[in-house]
Design a protein around this nucleic acid. Structure first.
Lengths: 163, 163
DNA sequence: TTAAGATAGTTACATATGAAACTATTTGCA
DNA sequence: TGCAAATAGTTTCATATGTAACTATCTTAA
């Protein structure tokens, strides 16, 4: 039985020249995806149930903590979320009294958003938590590596001219 | 009207000392998440509709291209997907005749999976496509940066002892 | 001024995803 | 042996998410 298992694990059944299979664990987009999901899940685990707060809701709150009186569209831009996701997150945040929504004077389509006192309280509890996760992550790197990472991310984030 | 908009954009309504809001766009987990999603979506766009193939399905196929005769559980391990996701992806792949599923001799719980000829055909079309996206991405970096990125990812991928 | 088009935001629908319960089979050990 | 626990995989259900259609309001230009 174990023979079968071993046979199944032998790396290359097909010559690379024949089919050129992808080595997923060396494939950059795949690695980024796994890494990012793992990290986000770890952080979310810490506040998700404790504050009944989803990742999207937290992102909206984080943006409103930095920029008061944004409209939903502006929140969407700053969080890189689409407007429907923002609308839903806001619906919950307003319902739970964490965000105060007014209507813009002079443009009744727009909302004017800000954290309530309760919202600030949660923010002030979650922000250090998130920050400490980031610190833990960066602790795996030395100073030089951190500098390169900054630089590399800045470059990778530039929109693809080729696409 | 534009006055309001400008006012809303002024960066720090609250003193950093008071609430220490997160700068999302400098926050590593957030940056990784956006970057990774952007990249994955760009790649997926190229094969998603053309081959009626989801990201999870493609990952399963990529693994089966490298390692023949895996069980579903082994596929799950190698793709970092959970077994339910794999089960669903496999259901579709088998139904569309892209993957052949047998039962393991000697353990009737296990499946024994491999790409069909049709599956290989799709793999051979999609793999270079994915690869070229990666190449385009890496083209944004110079050789030195690529070396550092490798090293940094290796380190970040190590499981957190602190967690 | 006013009708066509643009914009802000919500709702509806279809699909994706995750957790838990379930079935079938195998393993381990009294 | 033979029964409790473990394992492989599927199904179910509740929730999340993306796309498109919709409402309300605003802008623009004839």
């Amino acid at each position: 039985m174990t023979d079968h298992a071993l046979a199944a694990h032998s790396p290359l059944e097909h010559s690379p020249l024949e089919h050129a299979p992808l080595e997923l664990e060396r494939f950059l987009p795949y690695r980024l995806s796994i890494l990012s999901n793992t990290i986000s899940q770890e952080i979310a685990r810490d506040y998700q149930q404790r504050y009944d707060l989803s990742v999207t809701e937290w992102r909206v709150m984080a943006v409103l903590a930095r920029f008061e009186l944004l409209s939903a569209r502006e929140v969407a831009q700053r969080t890189a979320m689409d407007k429907v996701a923002v609308s839903r997150a806001l619906a919950r945040l307003v319902a739970s009294g964490r965000v105060i929504r007014r209507t813009h004077t002079g443009d009744k389509r727009r909302s004017v958003l800000r954290l309530s006192a309760r919202g600030w309280k949660i923010h002030d509890a979650v922000a250090p938590l998130a920050r400490s996760h980031e610190t833990g992550l960066l602790a795996k790197l030395d100073g030089e590596e951190r500098t390169w990472l900054e630089r590399i991310l800045d470059k990778l984030e530039t929109l693809d001219a080729t696409a």
